[in-house]
Simulated assay, not measured.
Amino acid sequence: MAYDRTAMLKLLRPAMTRILTPLGRALAGRGIGPDAVTAIGTLGTVVSALLLFPLGHLTAGALVITVFVLFDLLDGVVARLGGKGGSTWGAFLDSTLDRVADASIFAGLILYFVAGGDTLMAAVTLVCLVAGAMVSYAKARAEGLGLTADVGLAERPERLVVALVAAFLAGLGVPYVLAAGMWLLAVASLITVAQRVVAVYHQARET
């Protein structure tokens, strides 16, 4: 299956894989394939983000979403234990639904800010959503042209960690943490887009 190959995820993946292996074995034994796991994880993330965040349940939302985000690792475990391995379709589905899940998280936070009358932070979070999508698109488009665009401050794991930790702490009453997290992500994501554009520009000039 396709994963964002950052240093953070490389460090966390072996430990998380060991934890998730019993569950993966149980699912594979019941004939549940990795594509179904991917779809369940995305559906759970979307429903949780769009229901809990707008209602102000930030801590609960962050915890539930984190559980479903782990399905991004569980689908690979199920594929391996089921003897099917990865597949081109599975990689495409995984990558595509990742974008849907990410968008729902930030959309839920946008609705939370709108409900609270904070239009500035709603706009900043919208920047996070759009810039995050552009980060992923820039990499995919570069690879489609035979180039690479792996550089950048804020790839998917970093964006998820910052957003979910900020939401979790904000729900516990920590002041300004959610606003700070969104501002940080907005700036970091825009910088990442610029870094990838520059990287592709230099590679294209050399061809």
Rank of each mutant, 00 (worst) to 15 (best):
L74E: 02
V187F: 13
V198L: 12
R196L: 02
T66E: 10
T42C: 15
F68T: 12
F106Y: 15
T45M: 14
G29K: 10
R141S: 14
L178A: 04
S87I: 06
L184T: 12
L55W: 09
Y176G: 01
P14C: 11
L12R: 01
W183H: 05
P22N: 05
G56W: 02
M182L: 02
I19G: 01
L63Y: 08
R205N: 04
A62D: 04
G90Y: 07
D94L: 10
M16S: 14
A199R: 06
L20Q: 11
S136N: 12
E158R: 00
I110S: 06
P157M: 06
A103E: 12
V69F: 06
L55I: 03
D98E: 13
A188N: 05
A15C: 04
A166T: 08
G82C: 08
G173I: 09
V114M: 13
G82E: 12
A60F: 06
I110N: 02
L120N: 04
Y176I: 03
A138V: 00
G117P: 12
A28P: 08
H57T: 00
L120I: 15
M8R: 10
F68I: 08
I40E: 00
F168W: 14
A133Q: 13
A204M: 13
T6F: 03
V162T: 11
L109T: 02
A62H: 04
K84G: 07
R5Q: 12
V37T: 11
Y112L: 12
A15T: 15
E155M: 05
L63C: 12
P14W: 05
T192D: 04
T119K: 11
R80S: 07
L43G: 15
A167L: 03
G31H: 08
T119D: 10
D94K: 12
L147V: 04
L51F: 10
T192A: 04
G146H: 01
A154C: 13
T42N: 14
G33K: 07
T21N: 03
F53V: 05
D98R: 14
G86H: 08
G132K: 00
S136I: 03
D72Q: 04
D94C: 07
D35M: 10
G171E: 01
T207Y: 03
K84Q: 14
R196Q: 03
F68H: 15
E155T: 11
I32T: 04
G144K: 03
P22S: 11
Q203M: 02
P34F: 09
G90L: 05
G152D: 01
V77R: 01
G132Q: 06
L190I: 09
A60D: 09
A2M: 08
E206P: 00
A167Y: 00
L9A: 13
V161S: 11
L97H: 13
E155Y: 02
G31L: 09
V69I: 15
L50S: 12
M134I: 07
G181W: 00
L120S: 05
